[in-house]
């Protein structure tokens, strides 16, 4: 039985899903970092969030800004959505991988990427 290109791709993806390759790779990475005592965010593409009291937040490893208002910022990271509530929220600095938010921060919430 010959499969065309589209069907072959679909077949591969279903197999990969069934054997949970992604999760297994992540698991291996975390075990590897634990063994060598390397910070996890260096090995796997996790996001590191640093808070300075209720005035500044540094997010390392973000993907894009989804919403930006004066009192609400939603940021997409590698595995999560980070939602910041506050007032007078400014993006102080923005680079390829880092984002510094300053202002009066009331809350910091996470929302899973999957659902």
């Amino acid at each position: 039985m010959k499969l065309n290109k589209k069907e072959r791709k679909k077949f591969c993806s279903t197999i990969l899903k069934n054997i949970n390759v992604k999760e297994k790779i992540n698991d291996a990475k975390s075990k590897f970092s634990e063994f060598l005592e390397i910070p996890q965010e260096v090995v796997s593409n996790y996001t590191k969030i640093t808070c300075i009291e209720d005035t500044d937040i540094l997010i390392e490893g973000y993907k894009k800004i989804v919403d930006y208002y004066d009192n609400y910022i939603k940021i997409k990271t590698n595995n999560l959505f980070v939602i910041i509530d506050g007032s007078n929220l400014d993006i102080k600095e923005i680079t390829d991988s880092e984002l510094v938010i300053s202002g009066n921060i009331y809350s910091l919430n996470y929302k899973s990427d999957k659902g």
Binding site: K64, I65, V66, D67, Y68, Y69, D70, L89, D90, I91, K92, E93, I94, T95, D96
Partner: peptide, 21 residues
């Protein structure tokens, strides 16, 4: 689409700072 503007700046390596809504 101001958020998109900021994201595009990041993608195109345009350095901006002190962003205020």
């Amino acid at each position: 689409f101001t958020e998109r503007f900021i994201n595009l700046c990041k993608i195109n390596n345009v350095k901006i700072w002190d962003i205020r809504n």
